[in-house]
Design a protein around this nucleic acid. Structure first.
Lengths: 211, 211
DNA sequence: CAGGATTTGTGAAATTTATCACAAGGAATA
DNA sequence: TATTCCTTGTGATAAATTTCACAAATCCTG
């Protein structure tokens, strides 16, 4: 039952379990049941157990899961136990917020290079990093052995940035631009659907005549 | 087939169709087929048709959909044809980025009030708005008839902000904080899972031994 | 206006995902 | 050690979602 075909949703929930485990661990508890994890995550307990079993047998019947052990196991499974060098493209408002976002560093994602296509910005410093020209993305990230790219450009510049990142050897992209990036197979793109979420909210409120 | 039970996924995709329709419209085309929409969105054409039929019959056999008509229809369905007053809580890096994010205004979401619990910040101005004390959220948003709240606080302050927003009569929350908000029934919460997405990317790369 | 080419809308089938329900394993108590 | 109480892991079942496949509707060409 190792890594045959794991639902994307299960992977996303793994991240949620990890976050909750941290809270439980900091509160001083040493074990936790699938029922409690489920309750805190707003899920069904069988689902929690099924999700975890995709990755191994972590529990003890009658007792539950060892909090710190499970937390460590998930961290390792997700590859969050080592530092990951990252490049950021687009140093606008969103890009700057991401640059300062503590969550990235906490998870081991270290932003090593930042790029923009605005010549007004190129050469200036942000958070101790010099803003580089987008034209040089591929050579710069090769030099710094960056493995992950974040796209925080406007939609019109996103595909160009993606191409340059891929040219530079990047295998994974976190995309904040609201477009469907075209990438060759072998490149993993994860989209953060900021606009879509906002519009969903509008839809649900509108349907209930609350707007 | 009107609004019986529409999958959440369909609603989210509606937003994607709207975005693509805009592109096609700006390129000067007047009609579009489900096949083309599907291709651009990376989906199956039957799915596009099924999604749209949840909301009405928009297409013409042999011809496809009228681009501008469909775009307008989706905008209306999603309640994005009128202005929506919004309150933002948490004027940190993320909050400031959201404040300056053009996508909000473009979609009719007008940020009318901003709050923070940091007394250093309260009273100062950002983007023409005075930062108000989080303690006064409920009275302020009642005054300004705000309908939607955005939470961009650190996780530790998120539940407090949510409570105050709800106290002030808000029905919808866009939550950027990585916690499961506890809200009474009748309140719609949409989470933007920033950290989760990042961690998913790490997982997929890690699995392929690319980190 | 007839015939061929498209493309929609939609039942039916396939696939995926979530929930139920319970046997089996282990802890805790006496 | 026997007994009771929990809780896991999991096969079976149910629900949700996606894809297939085609009749019916409309366009377009000659």
């Amino acid at each position: 039952m190792e890594s045959y075909k794991i639902p994307k949703k299960s992977v996303e929930r793994l991240s949620i379990y990890k976050r909750i485990l941290k809270v439980i661990m900091d509160a001083g508890f040493t074990t936790v049941s699938s029922r409690e994890l489920a309750e805190r995550a707003g899920l069904n307990s069988a689902q929690v157990r099924k999700d975890l079993v995709y990755f191994g047998q972590f529990g003890t019947p009658g007792m539950g899961y060892q909090v710190s052990m499970l937390h460590r196991a998930i961290t390792k499974i997700m590859g969050l136990h080592k530092k990951i060098p990252v490049a950021l493209t687009g140093v606008g408002n969103l890009g700057q917020a991401l640059l300062a976002y503590p969550g990235f560093k906490e998870r081991g994602f270290i932003i090593e290079a930042i790029f923009d296509n605005d010549h007004e910005k190129v050469g200036k410093k942000k958070n101790g990093l010099k803003i580089l020209d987008e034209k040089n993305i591929s050579s710069e990230i090769k030099k710094k052995k960056v493995r992950v790219g974040i796209i925080a450009t406007p939609p019109s510049a996103a595909q160009f940035a993606a191409n340059k990142l891929i040219e530079g050897g990047i295998k994974g992209i976190l995309n904040f631009a609201p477009i469907e990036l075209k990438v060759p197979s072998g490149i993993t793109v994860v989209n953060v659907a900021l606009c879509e979420k906002l519009e969903m909210l509008s839809y649900y409120l509108s349907k209930r005549k609350l707007l």
